[in-house]
């Protein structure tokens, strides 16, 4: 006969505190992983933004030790400044024309590179050529185009040789043309990003959709309008909104090409704000202007986030 000895189990620990400890630890785990990022975001983004917002409600900030609360005075000053309103108008023209042109050029070139009518080698060559402007830094782009557009530069020489113009055009020095010229340069430098993104979108459209459209008797235009565009719609909307946001923050190109001139004809919200801060040392008014820009950008960001959620 065998006997089975069963050890008496140790007395169980009280369950409730352990569970609480585990639950707390579990809850803290994600925050532990996130903490480096959270700290960086707070230090590098939240704190500066809060500081700029607080500056915008004060007077004589930074340059004087005892700044005073000014309420909305800085906002009133900025929003009634004719130069700000001119900069707002210029920025609107600059970003909308740039975005539309980026979209049309990007889509056109992407469709060409996605076409079955071209050989692989031809496509590769064009892909390199089309993407080139994207590879230059803004400083290089500004210098190159300033040289090309000089009244004695290559552009005038070519146009005069071809008989398009009789006298050299002062492209950047003429208040009537300067805004359109810097917009053109911005379009030139920015379309490749659209092209690459839309090309990726085009390559993701299933061939069956086009085959089905062909079976239904659709012509190329109908295929483009009823298959390509609806399939690309999420990419187009995302890119358009992002481009509006990015272009509204374009500073270096304008600063290096025209500095906002001549006669404020290319003044943008970014250059206007910079001049207030670093030339006039009016950091409070510059902060108010920056907050207005932030709010306008947030409207665009809101549409972007909403569109992303819908996807």
């Amino acid at each position: 006969m065998t006997s089975l000895t069963v050890e008496k189990p140790p007395p169980a620990e009280p369950e409730a505190p352990t569970r609480t400890k585990n639950t707390l630890a579990k809850r803290l785990v994600p925050w532990g992983y996130l903490s480096p990022t959270v700290v960086l975001i707070v230090l590098l983004m939240v704190v500066p933004i809060i500081m700029v917002i607080s500056y915008s409600f004060r007077d004589n900030v930074i340059v004087q030790e005892n700044s005073v609360f000014a309420g909305f005075a800085n906002y009133t000053e900025v929003l009634t400044d004719p130069d700000f309103l001119a900069a707002l108008k210029n920025t609107f023209i600059f970003i909308t024309v740039s975005m539309v042109a980026h979209l049309l050029l990007g889509l056109g070139f992407a469709m060409m590179l996605n076409s079955g009518m071209l050989s692989g080698v031809t496509k590769a060559i064009f892909r390199v050529v089309y993407v080139l402007p994207w590879l230059f830094t803004i400083a290089v782009i500004a210098v190159i185009w300033r040289l090309l557009l000089d009244p004695s530069g290559v552009v005038n020489y070519v146009l005069q040789t071809l008989g398009v113009i009789s006298d050299g055009v002062n492209w950047l020095g003429d208040p009537g043309s300067a805004l359109w010229v810097v917009t053109f340069v911005n379009i030139w430098s920015g379309y490749p990003f659209f092209m690459i993104s839309l090309l990726a979108g085009l390559q993701g459209i299933p061939g069956e959709l086009y085959e089905a459209a062909s079976v239904d008797g659709a012509n190329p235009w109908q295929k483009f309008w009823n298959v390509t565009i609806p399939q690309l719609r999420p990419v187009i909307i995302s890119m358009a909104v992002l481009d509006l946001i990015w272009t509204s923050q374009q500073f270096a190109l304008i600063w290096m090409m025209t500095g906002g001139g001549p006669l404020n004809s290319t003044e943008m919200l970014s250059t206007f704000t910079y001049k207030l801060a670093f030339s006039e040392y009016e950091f409070a008014t510059a902060s108010a202007s920056a907050v207005v820009v932030l709010l306008l950008t947030m409207i665009l960001a809101f549409f972007y986030v909403r569109q992303q959620r819908e996807r």
């Binding site: 002062n170 020095g173 025209t258 001139g261």
Partner: peptide, 8 residues
């Protein structure tokens, strides 16, 4: 004066 002076 050389042209383009306003943005030169």
């Amino acid at each position: 004066i050389a042209e383009g002076s306003l943005t030169m």
